[in-house]
């Protein structure tokens, strides 16, 4: 039986789901629905003849993807996103359709940042970014509670300082 990489132990904060949903509505789904509505209204007012083909087209290209993204993505993302601080490494899983699991040894960590965007503050969430000497080695843990973020950042920082070397 070959060894299997198990998922990281800790989920994101449950409030992250709402945060992702709000993000989805404000960045993609909202504008797409508005665009579809505007198209259909304008077409109904000025080119009623175009409606029979424009309505299904807008439905398939704009409305359905927008709804699917806003309704499905947050739950799916919540099932995937996870993090764990091991004795020697940070381990994080992210993404939803394209999923990514990344392991970075603490000895390779160069900086640890904590961000809190305006929306995140509203939900009491934070993002921890761990950078390494390689752009393909940076870890972003987005959507954990502020308290968790503080502890995580502190512990990674401490552990990284104990490790010798220039982390390249």
């Amino acid at each position: 039986m070959p060894p299997v990489l198990r998922p990281p132990r800790h989920r994101m904060d449950p409030r992250a789901r709402t945060w992702w949903a709000v993000q989805a509505w404000t960045t993609l789904s909202g504008p797409a629905l508005l665009a579809a509505a505007a198209l259909l209204v304008l077409s109904a007012l000025f080119f009623p003849g175009a409606l029979p083909w424009l309505a299904p087209l807008a439905l398939v290209v704009l409305v359905l993807p927008a709804l699917l993204y806003a309704l499905v993505m947050p739950a799916w993302r919540y099932r995937v996103h996870a993090w764990e601080l091991g004795g020697f490494a940070v381990y994080a899983a992210s993404g939803w359709f394209w999923q990514k699991r990344r392991i970075v040894p603490l000895s390779r960590v160069q900086t640890v940042d904590t961000h809190r965007g305006p929306l995140q503050q509203r939900f009491g969430l934070a993002t921890v970014v761990v950078t390494t000497a390689s752009t393909a080695g940076d870890v972003k843990i987005a959507g954990i509670s502020e308290a968790d973020a503080r502890i995580l950042a502190e512990r990674i920082g401490e552990a990284a300082q104990l490790m010798p070397g220039d982390a390249t």
């Binding site: 394209w98 990514k100 390779r108 390494t132 393909a136």
Partner: peptide, 24 residues
Amino acid sequence: LAWTFTDTPFSRRAGVVTATAAVA
């Protein structure tokens, strides 16, 4: 200095994964 594993529902069904080795 880091390993990353990426997959999609399709690749999971095919039983394959892409592993990325990060170097500086």
